[in-house]
Design a binder for these strands. Structure first.
Length: 152
DNA sequence: GCCAACGTTGGC
DNA sequence: GCCAACGTTGGC
């Protein structure tokens, strides 16, 4: 399957992932996003999306390299992502991701929205739906292909 | 920094 | 179970 994962580059960027090669994708604290993580399997591909920054858009590509596992940050009192309600039963999930590619240029959100105006297969993309704040979302294979073509 | 849209919480 | 209040996300 294909996915899109959002991160604020100030916190964690595609460049950070590139230098680390591999890293956990953790700290997701939204049920809908969690439920998507639950469906991930090793070998899945994902776009790395930069949000809340100067250059908003798809910045690179990565691969899911682990099965979902309980997010250790949720039960770590020192973590900013600590959730004391998870101490009894950790309900949050993380996965391990591997860097595949950093695009030479970020594919801007504005361009993705433009494409959606003429490409009906893009209309269902959660990313461009008004008010969508989902940080983990599926990408259909058609959508993946359309977007990949615009990247290098 | 603003604010619209959404999710969560908690009183009733 | 409703819904107001609050907190958060994220584009602009």
């Amino acid at each position: 399957m294909y996915w899109l994962l959002k991160s604020e580059p100030d916190e964690f960027s595609i460049q950070d992932l590139e230098s680390k090669k591999q890293a956990p994708w953790d700290g997701v604290r939204n049920y809908q996003a969690r439920n998507f993580i639950e469906q991930m399997t090793p070998g899945d591909r994902a776009f790395f999306y930069h949000s809340s920054c100067k250059s908003i858009g798809i910045a690179g590509e990565m691969e899911i390299v682990s099965a979902p596992y309980p997010d250790p940050l949720a039960i770590n009192p020192k973590s900013a992502y600590f959730d004391k309600k998870s101490l009894n039963e950790n309900k949050w999930l993380a996965i391990e991701v591997k860097h595949i590619q950093t695009y030479t240029q970020v594919l801007p959100l504005s361009k993705i929205k433009k494409i959606a105006e003429t490409e009906p297969k893009m209309a269902t993309f959660d990313l461009i739906k008004k008010g969508s704040r989902l940080s983990v979302m599926p990408v259909s294979s058609e959508q993946w292909q359309i977007l990949s073509k615009l990247l290098s």
